[in-house]
Computed example of a mutant assay.
Amino acid sequence: MLMLFEMEQNFSVTTMEIAKEELREDEATRKNALNQMRLWLKKNNKIIHSRSDDSFLLRFLRAKKFSLPLAQEALERYLLLRQTFGRKLFYDIDIMCPRLEKLLTLGYIFVVPKRDKNGRRIIITRPGVFNPSKWTNADMCRMHGVTYETLMEDQENQIRGFVHYTDAAGMCLQQLTLFTPREAVRIVKNGERTLPMRHKEIYGINVPSSLKFALDFGLSLISEKIRSRVKIFSSIEESHTYVDKSLLPKEYGGEMEMSTMIDLWKQEMLEKREQILKNEKMSVRDDMFSESAKQGRVSALTNSHQHMVGSFRQLTVD
């Protein structure tokens, strides 16, 4: 296929080597898997409409290392998630929306322009600038949604994966009340299992000691594989051992002003805007899915989670 040939020509030799070594991907495997995915889509009565272009299907195949059954399950889960929780997470995720544009300008979540030494994009999140009295949990979800959807359109990102860099300075107890504990469980679980993203490194800085219980709760929800990639630092300088500070905003020891990085990221988002909005046409027959599937297939809360529910309910917010 000409498209596949052109795709390989646009990738560096190193990128193709990573795809082969980490994802078991080569031209023959990719071509066969794409054909099988398209045949499966045509025969799948649960799916009313889905994208079937290379870039879209490959994000699931790569996330599941070209296991067809796992990639097909992930695609079904993703489409169902879009439809079930769509209004909060996947619909109206237009960066031209004034509320989302304002959150971007504040630097709540953005992506630095340069890739790190492993070719990965660095996603910076600053929850402390999110004012719960001005913004809703839907705003937060939609902002993450438009960011991740934009990133996943890039096939280099699909192969290389992502680095998360979160500055928790300024976070307060009130922000924890944006979601119920059960909602938090669903978001974290689906973020790891359903969104076809390769989370390679996760860093946190400036975590207030008063919110350590919330951090422990969040870490208890993710798999051991992802948990092993999380590192928490007491200072920005300490994080420079793992993250090249020249890639970070000037405010974190880098060279480029944060506002400039945000402007550059906005341009990237605008370039992908039309495609992101077209994604809203995808749909499934939700009556063909079980209730547990529509609820994110989250199992009952464990005793430790129940304890956390109590902690959330006891919060007093000024």
Score class of each variant (00 low, 15 high):
37 M>P: 01
35 N>R: 09
51 R>M: 15
82 R>V: 00
20 K>Y: 05
70 L>E: 14
67 S>R: 13
44 N>I: 12
32 N>G: 00
80 L>M: 12
67 S>F: 06
45 N>W: 06
71 A>H: 01
37 M>W: 03
38 R>T: 10
55 S>T: 15
63 A>C: 15
18 I>F: 05
40 W>L: 10
76 E>R: 01
40 W>F: 10
51 R>A: 13
43 K>Y: 05
29 T>Q: 11
78 Y>Q: 01
74 A>Y: 01
79 L>Y: 00
40 W>R: 11
81 L>Y: 14
19 A>S: 07
14 T>Y: 09
36 Q>Y: 06
58 L>I: 03
41 L>K: 00
59 R>L: 08
58 L>Q: 07
63 A>P: 04
74 A>K: 06
68 L>Q: 13
21 E>L: 03
52 S>M: 07
15 T>S: 08
68 L>V: 02
42 K>I: 12
36 Q>N: 11
17 E>W: 02
21 E>D: 06
15 T>G: 00
70 L>R: 14
53 D>G: 13
52 S>T: 13
48 I>Y: 03
28 A>P: 01
67 S>Y: 05
56 F>M: 12
48 I>W: 03
82 R>H: 03
76 E>C: 04
36 Q>T: 14
43 K>L: 11
32 N>F: 07
18 I>R: 12
19 A>G: 13
43 K>Q: 09
47 I>D: 01
66 F>C: 03
78 Y>N: 04
39 L>W: 03
20 K>D: 04
24 R>K: 10
23 L>W: 11
35 N>P: 00
36 Q>W: 08
75 L>M: 12
20 K>P: 01
44 N>Q: 13
25 E>Q: 07
78 Y>E: 01
75 L>S: 02
77 R>H: 14
23 L>F: 14
56 F>G: 11
17 E>V: 06
15 T>L: 09
15 T>V: 12
34 L>Q: 04
53 D>W: 13
66 F>E: 02
52 S>I: 06
63 A>M: 06
74 A>I: 03
32 N>C: 01
37 M>L: 09
45 N>E: 12
46 K>N: 13
83 Q>I: 15
19 A>M: 08
66 F>W: 15
35 N>H: 07
21 E>R: 12
31 K>C: 08
33 A>T: 02
55 S>H: 08
26 D>T: 11
71 A>G: 05
52 S>Y: 09
46 K>E: 12
36 Q>H: 10
84 T>F: 01
70 L>Y: 05
19 A>D: 00
66 F>M: 09
84 T>P: 00
27 E>C: 06
26 D>K: 04
80 L>N: 00
77 R>M: 12
29 T>L: 04
31 K>P: 01
51 R>L: 13
24 R>Q: 13
46 K>P: 06
19 A>L: 05
51 R>N: 15
35 N>V: 10
44 N>H: 04
69 P>L: 08
31 K>Q: 04
41 L>I: 11
19 A>I: 05
74 A>H: 08
48 I>S: 11
78 Y>I: 01
32 N>P: 00
42 K>Q: 15
71 A>V: 05
80 L>K: 03
72 Q>F: 02
19 A>Y: 00
29 T>G: 00
30 R>V: 02
51 R>Y: 12
15 T>F: 02
53 D>P: 07
51 R>T: 12
40 W>G: 11
77 R>D: 09
31 K>A: 07
